[in-house]
Amino acid sequence: MSLDDAVQDLADRLGVALVVLDHDLKIAAFSVHDTDARLARLARLLAGSTAPVTNSLVEGHRLRYVKHGVRVPQAGGELVVLPLRHEQQLLGYVYYVEDREAPRVDDLEVLESAAPEMGALLSLRISERRHDKENSKNLLSALLGESPEARSAAAETLVRENLIDDVENYSVLVLQAPESSSRSVTRLAVEATLEFTMRSTTVKIVGAVLGAEGIVLFPRPVNHDRLERALADHDLEEVVAGVGSVKPSLPEAVDSYHEARLALRASRLDRRRYGRRVFWEDLGIDRLFLQLPLDRLTASQLPAGVRRLLGAPQGAELATILEGYLDSGGEIQGTARRLRIHRSTLYYRLDRIREIIGCDITDGATRLELHAGLRIARLAGLWPHR
């Protein structure tokens, strides 16, 4: 008998709607919810908006330690909760909301008598989940690896085992916690993305933590707003996310992965411009610059004008002025507005920049050299501190 069958048989016997949660209070199984009120409760639970069994309730009623059912008065109806164990290890909880007109006196006895079998079946479900998660991780690693043969085999297996939809639009999301955080934050970000997607759609996605990176494979483009909501729901605003472009086949998802890593790198190198959620399509010319060996570049390799400007007194401030001027296409009013300075101040500082770099900043070829040089200097961390 499966956990689902056991839950439904017990629910029918009691005349209630049962829900089984694992140790982390995530849904492991539930019975049929056959009334409007029960369906509404289930919908809220699946949407993640309300959960009758919370960590505070578990702590307040010592549910990790008790071996019998507990009745908890609540506004929406009494909550009946029973811990589930297997071989003395706490694995989760089974609960129902009392909404019957005539409860039976032996309900707790019936529930408790079924607990050993349900605990064993929950243990099996958790083991299966771990196996599925490890299998998905191995397949995802092979799909994004260097061997074309391994990528093709992993792609076929992912589709055959129904782990990902068989479509013509695949994109990769790479997540990474701040350097000051542990890798568990990255794992939480992956799980939050998977859970949010499962709650909001039937689209199948695959995610895992590989090394220091959290990776999620989507059979469609990644939506920026939904990504923000998925991470915001778990207070993961500090997690950096890079998103690759859509590819037409699963073996080609590796290209989206490399793009996503570069997008994530852009956030690390220029948070001011990109923020923490960066899409490959938004990188512009930085798509090329980010593939340079930026960590090996030195100031001596920059164009002479850029090198002189960055080495001058107030070099960081003057470089920011020139960067803003070039970003605005050399238009004075737009530059002043972008930099929030008066036009007369801008004219004065541009004259000072001309003196330092010794060239005409209205010349097209010179502008290209200066603009590219400044951008590379910023990405390579070669700007002087203010």
Rank of each mutant, 00 (worst) to 15 (best):
R183I: 09
L250M: 02
R104W: 03
S181G: 04
S200G: 13
R85T: 08
D9A: 13
M1H: 09
K137Y: 04
G329F: 09
S180Y: 09
A51N: 13
A142P: 01
R13S: 14
D235G: 00
S171H: 02
S256G: 14
R129Y: 01
A28C: 04
G329E: 10
L175G: 10
Q74H: 09
E168F: 06
A114F: 08
G275Y: 00
G329T: 08
T54V: 02
I332Y: 05
H33V: 06
D233L: 12
D363Q: 07
L231N: 11
R183V: 06
R226H: 13
A114D: 08
S49W: 09
Y257W: 14
E156K: 11
E59T: 12
L217M: 06
R199L: 01
A336R: 07
G69Y: 00
S344T: 12
T50C: 07
I376V: 14
L326I: 06
Q88Y: 08
A40R: 15
P148Y: 01
A155D: 07
H371M: 09
L283E: 10
L326K: 06
P103R: 13
S249W: 04
I215D: 05
P148S: 03
L297C: 06
R272F: 01
P52F: 13
I353C: 03
A11E: 11
I164C: 08
P221G: 13
L163H: 01
N223I: 12
R354G: 00
E59D: 14
Y65H: 05
R226C: 02
R386S: 07
H61A: 06
L42Y: 09
A253K: 04
H371F: 12
S171F: 01
L290E: 03
T201F: 11
E228M: 02
L374N: 05
S123L: 00
V7T: 12
T362N: 14
A266E: 10
V254E: 11
D235K: 03
S147V: 06
Y347N: 10
L231G: 10
D255K: 14
T362L: 10
L91M: 03
A253R: 05
A192D: 07
T193D: 00
A153H: 03
G242A: 03
S344I: 00
L122R: 14
E281G: 12
S184P: 00
S123G: 12
R349S: 01
L63Q: 10
A189G: 05
V159H: 03
P251Y: 02
R229E: 15
R220L: 11
R85V: 02
R261G: 11
K204F: 00
A212Y: 09
H234S: 14
I27V: 15
I27E: 13
A28R: 06
H385L: 10
G211I: 06
M1V: 11
L143T: 07
R160W: 01
L310E: 05
D106T: 08
V206M: 05
F196H: 14
F279H: 12
S136E: 15
V20C: 08
V80K: 04
L163W: 00
V240K: 12
D255L: 14
S49N: 05
R277L: 15
D295Y: 03
L173H: 01
P248F: 07
P384S: 09
V167E: 12
R338D: 02
E98S: 15
T362R: 13
A316I: 04
V243M: 05
D106K: 03
